[in-house]
Design a binder for these strands. Structure first.
Lengths: 145, 145
DNA sequence: AATGAAATTTCTCTTGC
DNA sequence: GCAAGAGAAATTTCATT
């Protein structure tokens, strides 16, 4: 683990609230100079604590109003990595989590509507030796960020 | 749905790759002036398509190496909103999804280690009339962003 | 090793077209 | 949608503890 002190944690929290916050803004809050804050943020990136900056999008406003999690169960021991590799090529797939136990993987998808969801699930099933799927349709979501 | 054209989509994709990209950078890529790009990004924020900017953190490097999804099943019809409200107050909870069908909710948690996970699950169980939980321990994760 | 201050470059953002 | 300019921020350099 990297050496990250309390000020670094405060900077990370500030950037999670607003990834475009200026160094002078953060400097005033944590009580350091602008240059010191920039050096700390740079170091957090170099050490891999910060992996990037991104925009948060309300996908419902873009017409992608349906979100779901699909549990995948594989037949046999092989293919976990392969099936994950295939799932990640499906554009509607937002995230893939491999799981200890049952199911073998959890796939987060975002689609335009329910028929579209059906298509994506079919594509996942065809990605390899899938023994079964179970899809959880999201009604509401809350995110810490 | 808001009116978002193809250039807006390209700007969103660019900002998802790097939320700190400058307007002049994006202007050169999409072939517009800097001012035009800024107006488009401003408008995407005003219309709620862009909800914010944030930093991406590798939590394993901060000592939070265990990730899991816990499925919650409630007893009775009441309390779904209440239990979600309680779950969001647990600091280790990253996201809460309410689900159509079984289970009733899916909770994403991030913890330091497995004993810590046990504590969080216990806290979720005490949040209301929980009929049962099932926890999926994440072995590996892939994210589109 | 980490900080602060100042100088320089670059970007933001407003105004007028 | 573009261009130009003033102001603000990012980034580099140098000096300090």
């Amino acid at each position: 683990m990297t050496d990250v002190d309390e000020i670094d944690h405060r900077l990370l929290a500030l950037l999670q609230q607003d990834g475009r916050r200026t160094y002078s803004d953060m400097a005033a809050i944590v009580g350091l100079s602008v240059a010191a804050v920039k050096r700390r943020v740079d170091r957090l990136q170099e050490t891999g604590v910060i992996t990037g900056f991104t925009v948060q999008v309300d996908h419902r406003r873009l017409g992608w109003g349906v979100e779901a999690f699909t549990e995948l169960r594989y037949a046999g021991t092989t293919g976990v990595a392969d099936i994950v590799a295939t799932a990640t090529t499906v554009p509607e797939v937002q995230a893939v989590y491999t799981i200890a136990g049952d199911p073998d993987a959890l796939v987060q998808v975002r689609v335009r509507d329910v028929p579209h969801l059906q298509q994506v699930i079919d594509r996942l099933r065809n990605a390899g030796p899938i023994a079964g799927t179970k899809t959880l349709l999201v009604l509401g979501a809350w995110n810490r960020s």
